[in-house]
Computed example of a mutant assay.
Amino acid sequence: MNENRSALTRAVAASPAARILVVEDEAALSMLLSYNLEAEGFTVDRVERGDEAEIRLSETIPDLVILDWMLPGVSGLEICRRLRARETTRSLPVIILTARGEESERVRGLAIGADDYVVKPFSVPELMARVHALLRRARPDRASGVLVFGDLALDRQNWRVRRGGRDIHMGPTEFRLLEHLMVKPGRVFSRGQLLDSVWGLSAEIDERTVDVHIGRLRKALSNASEQDPIRTVRGAGYAFDETFGRIV
């Protein structure tokens, strides 16, 4: 029982806490960062070149970028400058990694728009603490322990969902789906976006899998007489109904 509870807790910790893009051309360091970030519960994408990072960022915007200064293709400093020039990524948290420890270089990196600047070699626990601090500032919505709409409450810390005073039992995937939808009520997510955010970019599964899990989630959340909090948008995807729980 305790083992099952621990597994569920780990699954929730890895739910959309954050997706982090690591842009680092040193393979050993990139793997070290990925290992430690994933151990913290984050979803990690890795690229080794600046031009590859540009492509990835145009496809999916992560929650935070860890960016090496010196990169093949496009420099980390130039990538940071471009991120700050775009409306969609202007507030995206960026940590720059570099071997350049001079004060003038740190000032340059921060002036171009980096949120933090870490000099190699660095302490991994310190970097993890900086990642958490930046994410708390950038995404305060994810710091909330409980999401509540009407008679539905999702407790992120204790992996618990309640509706109308009763406990709702569901699997870890359904929990992550519900959490992801509740964080942004009314926003329509395509099946592909849900696959990326809930299962991860590396997941090799069909988009129809999303439909199956949405069906399970609906069955768990609502009986025949209760309002369905999940809205299907034909041809587009799914959303948490922003009108759910409102008194008309």
Rank of each mutant, 00 (worst) to 15 (best):
N4E: 13
N4D: 13
R10C: 12
A11P: 10
A13S: 10
A13W: 06
A13V: 11
A14K: 09
I20S: 06
L21V: 08
E24H: 05
L29T: 12
M31H: 07
M31I: 13
L33I: 13
S34M: 13
Y35M: 11
Y35V: 11
L37S: 03
L37H: 02
E40F: 07
T43Q: 15
R49I: 11
G50R: 09
D51T: 09
E54G: 03
E54C: 11
I55L: 14
L57S: 03
S58P: 12
D63A: 01
W69H: 00
G76C: 09
L77R: 01
E78T: 10
I79M: 04
C80W: 00
R81G: 07
A85C: 04
A85F: 04
R86I: 08
E87A: 10
S91Q: 12
L92G: 01
L92I: 12
P93M: 01
I96Y: 02
I96E: 00
L97T: 13
R100G: 06
G101A: 07
E102T: 14
E102M: 07
E103A: 14
S104A: 15
R106S: 11
A111V: 10
Y117Q: 02
V118K: 01
R130D: 05
R130V: 12
V131E: 05
H132T: 09
H132F: 02
A133D: 08
L134C: 06
R139S: 06
R139Y: 12
P140I: 02
D141V: 04
A143Y: 03
S144C: 05
L154R: 01
Q157Y: 06
R160C: 11
V161G: 01
R163H: 04
G165A: 03
D167W: 00
H169S: 13
T173I: 15
K184N: 15
P185N: 00
G186I: 11
G186M: 12
R187E: 15
F189C: 03
F189K: 02
S190D: 11
R191N: 13
G192S: 08
D196T: 07
V198H: 02
W199L: 15
G200P: 14
G200W: 00
G200R: 05
S202V: 10
S202P: 10
A203V: 13
A203P: 14
I205T: 08
T209G: 07
V212T: 14
H213Q: 13
H213T: 06
I214K: 00
L217K: 02
A220Y: 08
A220I: 09
A220P: 15
L221D: 07
S222T: 15
S225F: 10
E226T: 10
E226R: 07
Q227D: 14
Q227N: 11
D228E: 15
R231F: 12
A239Q: 09
D241R: 05
F244G: 07
G245W: 03
R246Q: 15
I247F: 03
I247W: 03
V248Q: 14
